[in-house]
Design a protein around this nucleic acid. Sequence first.
DNA 1: GGGTCCTACATTTTT
DNA 2: TGTAGGACCC
Length: 754
Amino acid sequence: MDSRKLIESCLAGCTEAQREAIRHPAGPLLVLAGPGSGKTRVITRRIACLVASGCRPDDIVAITFTNKAAGEMRRRVEALGVASGAWISTFHSFCARMLRVHGRSVGLKPSFTIYDDADSVSAVKRAMQELEIAQSLFQPSYVAKAISGAKNRLLGPEQMRESSGPPEITTVARIFERYEKLLRAANAVDFDDLLLFMVRLLQDAPETSEQLRRRFLHVLVDEYQDTNHAQYLIARGLAAGLGNICVTGDPDQSIYGWRGADLNNILQFEQDYPNAKVVRLEQNYRSTKIILRAADRLITNNLARKPKSLWTENAEGEPVRLFRLEDERQEADAVAADMARLFRDAGFVPRDVAVFYRLNAQSRVLESSLRAEGIPYTIVAGTEFFQRKEIKDLLAYLRLLDNPADDVSAERVANVPARRIGDLSVKRLKEWGSARGLSLLDAFARAEEAGTKGTALQGVAEFRRTLDELRAMPRTPVAKIVERLLEAIGYERYLASATDQGRERIENVRELVNAAAEYDEAEPEGNLLGFLEQAALISDTDRWDAERGGVTLMTLHAAKGLEFPAVYVVGLEDGLLPLKRDDGDHDLEEERRLFFVGLTRAKRLATLSFAETRARYGKREFTKPSQFLDELPAEIEAAQPAESFGAAARSPFRGARAKRLFGRMGASPEPRRVRRSENEEIVYDSDYPAADGLSAAIHAAAPFKPGDNIVHPTYGRGKVLSLSGYGDDLRATVRFPSVGVKCLILRLARMRKV
DNA sequence: GGGTCCTACATTTTT
DNA sequence: TGTAGGACCC
């Protein structure tokens, strides 16, 4: 395709404002993008347009905050048929990549290990032990938070000590100092360090920074309102050469101030870059007029913002409704009953609907009402795959292969599975080693000299043998190393002996092997370090939507970037939304933005609710309706929630009506946390209802039918029991002798007939 | 090493 | 009110 045509196709179907942003040739550009205004479309087409105009894809870097956003952007850019090869990644993985290459000039060895939050807390614990500060005095996680907060503002231990904080700040600063020493000695960096070292690279390493400045002709940053100070400096530093910086975002959707995001970065963009062009994307393609009016009216109450007038050509739509209930139990019942009505009368299906709340704790009542009502649901929360104990154990081993200095990992797995190395032996070796400036593994190597005796000495020798054997292997394919590791330490046997959870853990371990195999396939140039980096920087919420079957329950924070035909926002009470902490600290404008984000997720129907009393920490309290309700237009409708089947379901006539109405959809007998798997296919831990007569015709065309014997890459052989759903959502319920009954989405499950 | 009792604790969590 | 993590015991 010639470049003129390509540029034309990039502009096709776009509004004037979108076109302006897409073809802006050079110089700073600020795109203020309201919710649902086609922001991703603008960024991806802009990238394509730059390439069409002669820029090499490799000269463009586009930075996002989440892997999901990066993946989506990459997918869409590639779909435009150009520009594959552009750097599209998160801040953290971008920095990691750069530091692997250039880190030496700021004192980082290329094989550095990335510590996630849990590892950071472990390192803090260790620092506190070394300083003999009792964990009862300072909670390690609290200290880790304080350290992260300081790093976000580019402060070191000294500045923290000098800062005007509470008196105990000096102790925290001492721990901070020791923590830094530990990480450097372990050749490890935490999440914040990835950004900080990058900043240093750009500021203190003249040669490298000069090189980096010339490296990227165009720098794009998405969700700019969420950048913290370090990220701001990185963006500025990268673009310092040519000044081709394009940032997109919405000050009204900044909800991570408490994590160090600085709203001023976007508000002051025009002062930072005086010749900046500003484009406002104000047309909304997502919501009805009524929903948009409500959101717009609400947010005009904020002072720290850039005025925008949101509008849409969409229909007027249904009124925003407000439920007022006696307590949180009834609120949850009302939401569930109302949903049931939507499914019955209004043509909605469960996956169209989401419930948002301020606190995770609010999900519990909702769960129980949904279950009583027989409505399937998915909670977005819970342990992330790579955070699970069994996965962290294995990753710790893998890290040690290229980074033997990583003491946090060494300590973690020295005695896993048990090798009769007791805590005391580890403690002695640790002290013996640190007195001599040795890593824990070095100390292990000289255990006899250090005075370790008996079974512990044998255990240490065994541990070292295992590591040496693995270290001698080639670094790729990664899956091979993981498999050998499992064998060498007899890990599956170890997990199996740990009874009930054992089976799930073994499954997770196999998922890790899968993940490694997929990595090998996706990254022919990859190696063990690359895989570990991916594992450290990826979280599972990235992969939730492929498998959502039911109603979605999540916090307002988690809702950002998503959209649903029908949305409920619950708990609109003073002190809860806006949330007030016990110490009275709160940022009203950020809370308002949070509600704004929630409201603007809704496409067709938005429903709000509050309860007159609510139990908090076991004590029941009277509430006041949220002030945000007063800030909405008068057209908000006080609504009568439908009669609750939930209440009936808890009576002796348990669930009869619900069953009649929703029998086909099936209840969620167990709460289903989002369970992650690399191949995105496990859906339910329980049986899913079989197909009824109506869908039999659809299922006749399916590649499998009940009774078929199949084989699945993870679970092995199994027998299809039934089919359900249709289209992309077609599922098979399969019995596997190895793991029992599973319900799999056919589109995603890689199984075949035998 | 694993189970059980007990107490302290309790926003939001892109990486 | 619920829980997670530590102490304690076998």
